[in-house]
Design a protein around this nucleic acid. Sequence first.
DNA 1: TAAAAACATATATTAGATTTATGATTTCTT
DNA 2: AAGAAATCATAAATCTAATATATGTTTTTA
Lengths: 298, 298
Amino acid sequence: MNIHALRLFYYVAETGSVTKAAAKLRISQPAVTSQIKKFEKDLGLPLFTPSGRGVSLTPFGMELAKQAGNFFTYEEQIDEFIEDYRQGRIGKIRIAATYLPANFLIPSWAARFKARYDQIEVVITTTNSRQAFEQLNRHEADVAIYGGGLEGRPENMDWVELFEDELWFVVSPSHPFANRSVTLAEMMKEPFIMREEGSSTRERLFSLCRTYDLKPPQVALQFNGLNEAIRSVMAGYGANFVSSLVVREYVERGLLARVWVEDIHLTNNLAICTRSNEQQPAIVQQFIEICKQYPTEV
Amino acid sequence: MNIHALRLFYYVAETGSVTKAAAKLRISQPAVTSQIKKFEKDLGLPLFTPSGRGVSLTPFGMELAKQAGNFFTYEEQIDEFIEDYRQGRIGKIRIAATYLPANFLIPSWAARFKARYDQIEVVITTTNSRQAFEQLNRHEADVAIYGGGLEGRPENMDWVELFEDELWFVVSPSHPFANRSVTLAEMMKEPFIMREEGSSTRERLFSLCRTYDLKPPQVALQFNGLNEAIRSVMAGYGANFVSSLVVREYVERGLLARVWVEDIHLTNNLAICTRSNEQQPAIVQQFIEICKQYPTEV
DNA sequence: TAAAAACATATATTAGATTTATGATTTCTT
DNA sequence: AAGAAATCATAAATCTAATATATGTTTTTA
């Protein structure tokens, strides 16, 4: 494919105008026009249609512009990689993670990694799971670390499963349900401390209610962070449904108490995810090795 | 970044030899050497070190080769995407249609089309005939499917005629005119169930009255849908003037009755319309083929 | 209706990639 | 060990392809 032509096309698609694209590229307008025309002829498909005194994209053009966008983003990443190397900053690893791993797992992995590769920059971005995969797809991240259900995992990814982690119902130790066994219906009558929308645990609790045809619990308080939510549970403001990894220590120290809800056994599947059919840089492979070696050491 | 140079570099890295890379690329060996040298100078980092009478990669070269491999794999994927689109394996077809075809013809065509090209998105917009052509002109639709008179068809369009369809006067079976032959003047004294303004059948009935210098019929009821209008005719609220395609089944089942109006034989011409002097994408051609093959199979 | 804006086309120019010819170094062969 | 073969490097000439300049066409705006 003619990448030069693809690039000019992409600029036109982005700016919506041949003239503007030419200005941005600092070349003449006819240079852009002729490249686009030739490109369309090569492809055998039209990219633009006249629209007033400008142009607008065909459906195919729109799709191609998206692809081109990702492609040139990747090109930029390679440039950055080269620049890092030239500057002697041997490298960088960019991790997109959901809340749980970012707060409870990555800190120890990153520390171990840094101890061995102290020159390597480790950049961690915390997002929800959808955005994590989008970042990976757009080559804005090298790996995604994901804790959640098995459903809804994207196709074009390689998965390295780390471990399974139980989801627990927890309340304050002074709560009547503390260390008792109750039905799901009873549990759902309690007020809950909730995380923000997009939290996979929140979604799973709600879908659990739909499955068993129960009214979702009342939302006592809502927090945009896991620690804050847990602190609020300890203070007795409501119940929570949360990864055992996060609360085990609190339960052991008697600051939180489990509630055994009959027949409900959900797990979070923790996994490291990379784009499939791709050769990963050595440092990325090294990082994944460390994660596999010390999966749960907090 | 110089992608051309990156490509030559990648071939050398893959084959492990400048000469072999040149042979694979079908260019001369000095062409490859000079590009690599220039690339190394641009980057400010060496990619190869001499090794015997050949070359071998530096650590940086190895990492860059991985990145380049992924990058060119992505390029190939874009090529495949383009090829898929060109072959009509993926894509979108946007159909602007008038009421009759959108309700009575396109459903079966679209089903057949989808069965063969399940990756293709089919978007159907129902409008009146004028707007259908405007959409086509503005490149907001790929084809227009039009049922109506031959007059008033825009110039700059290519037409594929599908079939002719008689327009019938119909009444409820208990109506005194049922299965009888009457004059146009007599027919026009009956109250009519009318479609909304902009309906081409409505327009043609009114222009028929003008032609024969008759007062237009009284409007018994007006509906914004064809099915609703027909149901109202069956219930005996008035007469209608409608495509035989729509009512044939009702007439055969004795739910509606024709009225033969002397010397009046109007037809709807059903046609598929595309912008002329344009090469249509393969999928659009395929869709038109299906329409031609099964014109009236409801 | 004239002016301005935006894209298209034709021709000329220029940048840069390739070829050809040849040199330098290393390895293989006998 | 010497000559042949293989491999990469360099220099000059050639050729391809992208760009610039000038101008035309269409559409919108004043």
